[in-house]
Nucleic acid binder design. Structure first.
Length: 750
DNA sequence: AGGCGTTGTCATAGT
DNA sequence: AAACTATGACAACGC
């Protein structure tokens, strides 16, 4: 029951505080529960927010220990490190990667020419990936297929400027990326800059810094724009200005009014495995893209270009700049544009293919906006329709294109994208923690320093370990303490261990005195606390903790007088010093001890307080005590127990706060990691969209009617059928189907 | 002198 | 019912 209560109270309290800390402007329910649980738990395991109480319990029972914030608590530090490493370990569990791989594998079976290409294709932003793609060697590298994406993720992680294996630096990296993403939302870079924040918040400096970076990026983006007429606003990738003019023997599907079987999927569907429902995905896309659009509106190209990427000279850019004269594959078959074909098509992104001049922007190239704004909107709307339909059709395309690009990554991106706003908000709010934490630490440290300065503590510290033993031995030397200390500690230990509570001893000087005089105070407590409360190396914490406790409260227990009555003072002590010390001890005695002495209570307060009831009663029965004495004894016992209870209570409070602090830090780390993953996924998605778009344009551009004339993209569209065939259908029909498909998911939701 | 943190104590509720 | 524990509130104390 106790533990249950502990769970409830601490769990609720902690969770509440966490919510208040983290969820100020965030729909935490959505973020933590309603939307993410599966993903979150898959990725992270049970949320630390939810497992808080268990964690706490674990701390108390296993390696828990009393951590006083004032203490320089090494174990606390190590515990934090352990948790950090756990978080890192979780980080290694790349579910998204797994899913992506699954998707790749899924596509491979149909893959024909080069199944490995898709993975390479996904790595556009990684230099190695780019090299693979652009390299002349487009041969089959199937071995890369499985690990390609994970590698890519790694690479992607390395794309951003300062990167290293260090988590902190990764975070910084992420922060850079995110900041670029969020700058338009008003988030300053400094918000993400942990180290920076830890150093101090020099707001002015940060703002200036952020402005400088912004300017830099703007300049970069402008530069890129100047260099390449067609530059993706987000990726910085340049696009071909012209479409391939040559004609190949492409099998055409005759435009037909009838709806071909399996026509539901547009050509864009190659990315789908065929069974995935594009509807929800599209909705997610919409959500995401609305956010992106918002960003694009507020900031412009400069930011986005940097955000999504590749430096101007990046291989990626070159990869996408098509060389007009490059020969193309003459044998492209529309039928290959199936899933398997898709793989092959990705292979088409080899320089040869990509270098194909794209049909002039007049028709097919909504993707090739002439200015940065449209570039942004291109990805901003990110409707695949926007990618694949001519500009003039975009209006409808936005409505209809929904299902057109089912996202193989949707299951994962889904969560991330739906939470875009929340994440962004979180990112913006993220600033508080490190500062807070550092402040807390400083506060604690300073307090600890104060404690160190407290006049009587040093000796107590040095004797604290020995005090437990010395106390027992000294107690045993006294008439009755031996049994009392052991018995009391056992009883107390049961209760303490039961609840994971931690008692801590009272004034340290008491120990000192007790050690000197063999007096009996609360020592058993002391040793007990250090010994049994936490069976952990962190016992170290006892020292600083006690140290801090060591205020000079004169009413604290100082067993001296009473004990000196009980025990013959050591003859070795000189008279003067003895008297002096007696006075001192007198002052150190607690009020109850004074009272006890005044009332001539024949046994120690320690016994009174710590003896089990039976033994306590037995002890009382051995003496003829007046009513006043009995009353005092019971009060002493009550107060003594309550004192320990209060100490435990306060300690628990501190532990709770510390745990909360740690949990907040952990959650922030998780959040940063998730954001980082999201960015990576978005990057991959963008690349895939671009590839699909290029494929579409390439295929469409090769189509010729009976008269050998190219089809107008405003009148015809390619659709990808479930059976792997690609059909050329009238645009109107495609739009209708797209609308139809768009409604389905909505209906389904209801 | 007053603020602040720590500790002990009381009252009370809960176990 | 008794014993014990938990905790908010308050006061004493020292810095």
């Amino acid at each position: 029951m106790l533990s249950l209560k502990k769970y409830l109270t601490e769990g609720l309290l902690q969770f509440t505080i966490l919510l208040s800390l983290i969820g100020v402007r965030v729909d935490v329910d959505t973020y933590l529960t309603s939307q993410l649980p599966p993903l979150r738990e898959i990725i992270l395991g049970p949320s630390s927010a939810y497992t808080q109480t268990q964690f706490h319990n674990l701390r108390n029972t296993l390696d828990g220990y009393g951590v006083h914030p004032k203490s320089i608590d090494l174990d606390n530090y190590f515990t934090a490190r352990r948790l950090l490493s756990q978080v890192r370990a979780l980080d290694r569990f790349q579910v998204p990667t797994t899913e992506v791989n699954a998707w790749l594998v899924h596509r491979d079976p149909e893959g024909s020419v080069s199944g490995s290409q898709p993975s390479s294709g996904l790595t556009l932003e990684s230099s190695s990936g780019l090299q693979d793609v652009t390299g002349p060697d487009n041969g089959v590298r199937e071995s890369e297929t499985e690990q390609g994406f994970s590698e890519d993720l790694e690479d992607l992680g390395a794309v951003a400027p300062p990167v290293s294996g260090d988590l902190t630096k990764e975070d910084i990296d992420l922060i850079d990326i995110l900041w670029r993403q969020d700058i338009d939302l008003g988030a300053g870079r400094e918000i993400f800059d942990y180290s920076h924040r830890q150093k101090e918040q020099d707001v002015d400096k940060d703002l200036q810094d952020g402005a400088e970076q912004d300017d830099t990026w703007s300049g970069e983006g402008a530069e890129a724009l100047a260099r390449n007429l067609l530059v993706d606003g987000e990726t910085g990738e340049s696009f071909p200005a012209q479409f391939p003019a040559d004609i190949s023997s492409i099998t055409e599907a005759v435009p037909s009014e009838s709806e071909p079987p399996g026509l539901q999927n547009n050509l864009l569907s190659p990315l789908l495995t065929g069974t995935d429902s594009p509807f929800d995905l599209e909705q997610q896309w919409q959500d995401l893209m609305s956010i992106m659009e918002m960003q694009a509106m507020e900031v412009n190209t400069s930011t986005n270009e940097i955000l999504y990427s590749a430096p101007p000279g990046d291989p990626l850019s070159t990869n996408y700049s098509l060389a007009p004269n490059t020969p193309i594959n003459q044998n492209v078959s529309l039928h290959q544009a199936s899933l398997g074909g898709c793989s092959q098509d990705f292979s088409l992104f080899s320089p040869e293919v990509e270098s194909l001049p794209v049909a002039s922007g007049s028709t097919l190239l909504p993707l090739v906006p002439s200015n940065s704004t449209s570039l942004n909107s291109t990805f901003g709307s990110t409707n695949l329709a926007g990618l694949f339909f001519p500009p003039q059709l975009n209006g409808t395309a936005n409505d209809t294109a929904g299902p057109e690009l089912p996202d193989p990554l949707g299951g994962l991106l889904d969560e991330a994208m739906l939470d875009e706003i929340s994440l962004m908000d979180l990112a913006i709010e993220e600033g508080f923690n490190p500062v807070q934490a550092s402040q807390l630490e400083e506060e604690f440290d300073s307090d600890s320093g104060l404690s160190l300065d407290s006049s009587h503590s040093p000796s107590s510290l040095s004797s604290s370990e020995g005090s437990s033993s010395s106390s027992s031995s000294s107690s045993s030397s006294s008439s009755s303490s031996s049994s009392s200390s052991s018995s009391s500690s056992s009883s107390a230990s049961s209760s303490f261990s039961e609840e994971g509570a931690v008692g801590y001893s009272s004034d340290s000087e008491t120990l000192d005195l007790e050690e000197a005089e063999g007096a009996v105070g609360y020592q058993p407590e002391y040793s007990k606390f250090c010994r049994m409360s936490y069976q952990d190396p962190s016992q170290l914490s006892c020292l600083p903790y006690l140290e801090h406790v060591g205020h000079n409260h004169t009413y604290n227990m100082a067993p001296s007088a009473l004990d000196s009555a009980d025990l013959p003072p050591p003859s070795a002590l000189k008279k003067g010093s003895k008297e002096k010390q007696a006075d001192f001890l007198d002052k150190q005695m607690s009020r109850d001890e004074h009272r006890a002495r005044a009332m001539k209570i024949p046994f120690t307060n320690d016994k009174i307080i710590n003896l089990p009831v039976e033994e306590f009663n037995e002890l009382l029965s051995k003496y003829q005590l007046s009513e006043a004495q009995l009353s005092l004894i019971r009060d002493i016992r009550r107060r003594g127990k309550n004192k320990m209870a209060a100490q435990n209570c306060r300690k628990r409070k501190l532990d709770t706060i510390l745990n909360l602090e740690r949990d907040v830090e952990d959650l922030q780390r998780d959040k940063a990691r998730l954001l980082r993953e999201k960015v990576e996924f978005l990057r991959s998605l963008r690349q895939m969209k671009q590839k699909v778009q290029s494929l579409y344009q390439e295929v469409f551009g090769r189509l010729r009617d009976e008269n050998g004339r190219p089809y107008s993209p405003s009148q015809y569209a390619l659709q990808y059928a479930g059976d792997g065939s690609v059909l050329l259908i009238p645009r109107t029909l495609a739009d209708q189907q797209a609308r139809r498909q768009e409604r389905k998911p909505k209906d389904r939701r209801k």
